[in-house]
Amino acid sequence: MPHNDPVAALTPQVVDWRRHIHANPELGFSEYETARFVVDKLRAFGLDEIHEGIGGTGVVGVLRGRPGARAIGLRAELDALPVLEKTRLPYASKEDGVMHACGHDGHTAMLLGAAKLLADSRAFDGTVYFIFQPAEENEGGSMRMIEDRLFERFPVEAVYAVHNWPGLPLGKIAVRAGAMMAAVDTFELSFEGTGAHAAMPQLGDDPVLAASAFVQTVQRVVSRSVDPQTALVVSITQIHGGNVGNIVPGKVWLQGTCRFFEPALSDHCERLIGEIAEGIAAAHSLTCKLAYRKGYPPLVNTSVATEQAVDAATAVFGREQVETAFNPSLGCEDFAYMVREAGGCYAWIGAGAVGPGEGLHGDRYVFNDAIVPTVLRYFVTLVEQTLAGEPAKTDV
């Protein structure tokens, strides 16, 4: 690295910020201390405006460069997960049962670092909005910020984000136009009838048998109702019923999730899951009740924003390190709401190999601090290249 490299000089501080946030995790919409930490740093960096309490605990920092009407957004997440940490790190979580097991501590710290570097240089035309959102993991904090007029108050031509990606080689960045992450729906289903002694099952109904049949039959949604080349997953994640070893329970409750890229599959899954449940309930002389909830939409990167991201990544990583031909993930991400609303691009940053329990949401997950300087360079380069000259052609 060249002498007087501001990224190299700042990286140890960013790592310290990340570890401080890691040691003090907060769950979605309760990120009060994390938000306060962010605000204090942005104020120290000399940002032009700082707005708090957006969508709950969200923060937006406003930085203006040289005169210009254009603006983009950069986003990171504030929240942690309800996971009991088992890393034994010196900076491990101080909150029992709460852990930054997905790298949001790193994302927040790196976005703060980018804000510091860009505030020091202001080598761009127009405005950058640094968006720190609450509650990405389950509660849809991105949508809450949008409902709180995020893009009306801070209009952008595109919004960008990154996520560390264990399993992708260190030094690589993966980014593609189109679908990047899946939509997610969830459902809860109960079968209910009359319980009975296990030795006299003929005196009651058997919702356990019905639930077992449902678990197998519901895979018909994937295997027999859509084109085999269509990406669709239906997974049963919980089954609960009974609490005594010699009693057939009167009720069994199940929970599951559907993942897909095509938005029309949401209604398709809801209809077929309901039909299958009703049929199985009737065959077993039971009643059933389905609660189907539509969740995050698919995250679909827009073409112009993706071109800008690829250009910036190429400048930082080298073209051979930028992956653009790969399969999207059936995981989900509520940044999808922001991209759907304003256009934008989401990229995965290679974090290297991982072992059991060390991946995203694992209780032994460890954020790889080696990615910090490259992400700082990526964000700074993205801003300086994008907010220069005439705007690119808009998506059609």
Rank of each mutant, 00 (worst) to 15 (best):
P2S: 12
H3T: 14
V15R: 07
L27C: 07
V59T: 09
V62S: 08
A69R: 12
L78G: 06
D79A: 05
E95Y: 04
D96T: 12
M99A: 15
D105G: 04
L111W: 11
L117E: 04
L118P: 12
D120E: 15
S121K: 15
R122F: 12
F124K: 00
D125Y: 03
E137N: 09
E137M: 04
M145H: 10
D148P: 09
R149P: 10
L150T: 08
L150C: 10
V156M: 01
V159R: 06
W165A: 15
I173S: 07
V175E: 10
R176L: 02
M181V: 03
E188N: 12
S190F: 01
T194Q: 14
M200S: 12
P201Q: 06
V208Q: 00
R220T: 15
R224E: 13
S225K: 15
P228K: 00
V234I: 14
I236G: 03
I236P: 05
N243R: 12
G245F: 15
L254D: 05
A264N: 13
C269D: 06
R271C: 00
G274N: 10
G279Y: 03
A283N: 07
C288K: 06
L290S: 12
A291H: 15
A315H: 12
F335K: 11
I371C: 12
V372A: 08
P373N: 05
R377K: 10
Y378N: 07
A392G: 14
